[in-house]
């Protein structure tokens, strides 16, 4: 594994573990965790806290017949799901992302948004939006701020902005305070998964095009 320098924050990890985040945010977290064992361990530690809460919960009485009904269910089940030997299915897109792009990056229907940049919006629940971005090597993205949170995970290539250098597996967490101009690294075209919980705020002319670009 490559070394990942930019990680999830504790509030995102806890929200993911508690199960209270929008689907698009869960998707980018699951994709980052697929690439980052530090954050995977942090998520599983938070799951352990959930387990401790469950264990300490005052038990409710079950209806008569609940156990028998469950035993009937398991007896009627097919053979249990065996554990497969897991192999990465794609060198760029981890498994949770593949489920949202039809199984392959080749299946993505990119739409041009100007300056050679392409995007594809993924189908999730509406509280937050997930999109794949394809940024040609060396291209600068429009200077933009956010009304809400913007999470950007690098899958291929790298980008640089005022906050630092972000390569495969790194996730940038930008809140409403941050105004930035990410520039894709010159060495390779950059593919990112980006999640926003409010429309981006673009400066200048790009703003006019915003409703059409849906970014």
């Amino acid at each position: 594994m490559t070394t990942i320098r930019h990680h999830l924050t504790d509030d995102l990890i806890m929200g993911y573990s508690a199960g209270t985040l929008p689907e698009a945010v869960n998707l980018i977290i699951a994709t980052h965790v697929s690439l980052c064992d530090d954050c995977r361990a942090a998520v599983e530690a938070h799951d352990a806290l959930g387990g401790a809460v469950l264990d300490a919960t005052e038990a409710e009485t079950l209806d008569d017949g609940c156990l028998d009904a469950t035993l009937a269910m398991i007896r009627a089940m097919d053979a249990p799901t065996p554990r497969d030997i897991a192999m990465p299915r794609d060198a760029i897109a981890p498994a949770p992302l593949l489920d949202y792009i039809g199984g392959s990056l080749e299946a993505v229907k990119w739409r041009p948004v100007g300056m050679g940049v392409k995007q594809a919006i993924l189908k999730t629940s509406p509280e937050a939006t997930a999109r794949l971005l394809y940024i040609p090597a060396g291209t600068a993205m429009p200077d933009h701020g956010h009304r809400g949170l913007e999470l950007t995970l690098v899958l291929q290539g790298a980008f640089q902005d005022d906050e630092g250098y972000f390569a495969r597996g790194d996730i940038e967490i930008a809140d409403a305070e941050l105004h930035h101009t990410p520039v894709a690294d010159i060495s390779q075209d950059c593919i990112c998964l980006a999640v926003t919980d409010a429309p981006l705020r673009l400066k200048g002319l790009a703003r006019l095009a915003q409703p059409f670009l849906n970014i």
Partner: peptide, 19 residues
């Protein structure tokens, strides 16, 4: 709970290599 209350699947991380 996510499935029942929000009608959503929860994206899960890729399984670790396992043999």
């Amino acid at each position: 709970r996510i499935d029942a209350l929000r009608k959503q699947k929860r994206p899960e991380p890729e399984d670790l290599p396992w043999g």
